[in-house]
């Protein structure tokens, strides 16, 4: 009894995001320091020490709040990519999803409410490789792929304001 309540408490503690976490999540989505000791620089700005920054970011990564500290590449500047969709029958969704998810050239895959219900992003080395991937998917699933190429990217992506106070 005591043991299970301890587990519950530990779990809820893991989910807690405090003020410093909020700053780490919100304030460093762009302009991450490009210097030898970037976490020290972050630490100085937040008034904590370097190890704490590293520890907190590790924890936020483990809890899934942070995907990674990394680069967002402008679409189209490396390789070839596209948004694509399939119309999958209800009873085939699991099967088709596991095939799509297992592909190394797919980085996002969502089920959405529409006749075109499976939406994924394909990332390949070249236009030719992209065409080949589409053909492979059509052969493997027996479905026609709706290929929606990006023509123009309007969004600057300055990060996402998490609006903690709203």
């Amino acid at each position: 009894m005591a043991f299970s309540s301890l587990i519950v408490r530990t779990r809820s503690a893991c989910k807690m995001i405090d003020e410093i976490d909020k700053h780490l999540l919100n304030d460093f989505q762009r302009g991450f320091p490009l210097c030898s000791r970037p976490y020290l620089e972050v630490a100085n700005r937040l008034g904590i020490d370097e190890n704490e920054v590293i520890g907190r970011l590790s924890r936020l990564k483990d809890s899934g709040h942070v995907s990674r500290i990394g680069a967002i590449v402008k679409p189209g500047s490396i390789g070839a990519s596209t948004l694509a969709a399939l119309q999958v029958d209800e009873d085939k969704i699991e099967q088709v999803a596991s095939y799509i998810n297992a592909r190394d050239d797919v980085n996002h895959n969502y089920l959405r409410e529409h006749d075109y219900n499976m939406w994924f992003v394909l990332n390949t080395s070249s236009k030719a490789a992209l065409d080949r991937a589409v053909q492979e998917i059509e052969e493997a699933t027996g479905l026609q792929v709706l290929v929606l190429r990006m023509l123009k990217d309007f969004h600057l992506d300055l990060g996402f304001d998490l609006k903690w106070h709203s």
């Binding site: 762009r30 991450f32 899934g64 967002i72 992506d157 990060g159």
Partner: peptide
């Protein structure tokens, strides 16, 4: 490495470099 990342940001190859959050979890 630092110089290249800086250049890639300045020439627009990278849109941003920093913490990438997962919206759903937040």
């Amino acid at each position: 490495v630092l110089e290249r990342l800086n250049d890639l940001l300045n020439n627009g190859t990278l849109k941003r470099f920093g913490v990438i959050v997962r919206h759903h979890e937040l």
